[in-house]
């Protein structure tokens, strides 16, 4: 038996030093695991957060992004709908996003403060000009969802 030489060439980019092009094209099968419920919720225009269900736990804060387990006692949490209005805690406009960015350059990136929620959710402003303290409300990408955090955005309230 004779083995044929492979025919796929790693394209040479320069001779000295010798630099070759090494293509990478595969995909990952990423599971959201227990957090999938949050992303399913976006398609139903729900903003799903979690709260600890352990009666002995002291903090019982409302987490968004959700946590299926409580960081204080490691017990399971319960799903709760979070308010869909909030205020812009801080913002930036990304002029030069990285390669995988799916929104147009210049999209305002915002952190949203929501009453009762202990985090400041990172998201983007779909309409208007951002300002710290500005009242905003959630909007959902239900028609053609990306199945990612980009299915949630905010507009002036």
């Amino acid at each position: 038996m004779a083995i044929e030489w492979p025919t796929t060439q790693l394209e040479k980019q320069s001779d000295d030093p010798m630099v070759i092009l090494n293509p990478k094209t595969w995909s990952h099968y990423h599971s959201y695991g227990g957090w999938g419920k949050f992303f399913d919720g976006l398609r139903e225009r729900k903003l799903l957060a979690t709260r600890c269900s352990n009666s002995d736990c002291g903090e019982k804060r409302l987490w968004l992004p959700p946590r299926c387990e409580c960081p204080d006692c490691w017990h399971e949490t319960q799903w709760v709908e979070a308010p869909q209005t909030g205020r812009i805690y801080t913002w930036s406009v990304v002029k030069y996003p990285g390669e995988l960015f799916k929104l147009p350059a210049g999209t305002p990136l915002i952190s949203v403060e929501i009453e009762g929620v202990c985090t400041k959710l990172m998201s983007f402003l779909k309409e208007g000009t951002p300002e710290i303290g500005m009242a905003v409300k959630a909007v959902f990408n239900v028609d053609n969802p990306t199945n990612s955090i980009l299915d949630l955005a905010w507009v002036p309230a």
Binding site: H30, Y32, W35, P65, Y89, T90, W91, S92, V94, Y96, P97, G98, E99, L100, F101, K102, L109, S111, L121, M122, S123, F124, I132, S148, I149, L150
Partner: peptide, 24 residues
């Protein structure tokens, strides 16, 4: 990667959020 990377794919953006709040 689940909740923040998609919003920029750029670390400077995450620091810019802090910069804006710090300045405020």
């Amino acid at each position: 990667k689940d909740f923040e990377s998609e919003l920029g794919w750029m670390y400077a953006a995450y620091y810019a959020l802090m910069a804006q709040r710090y300045q405020y």
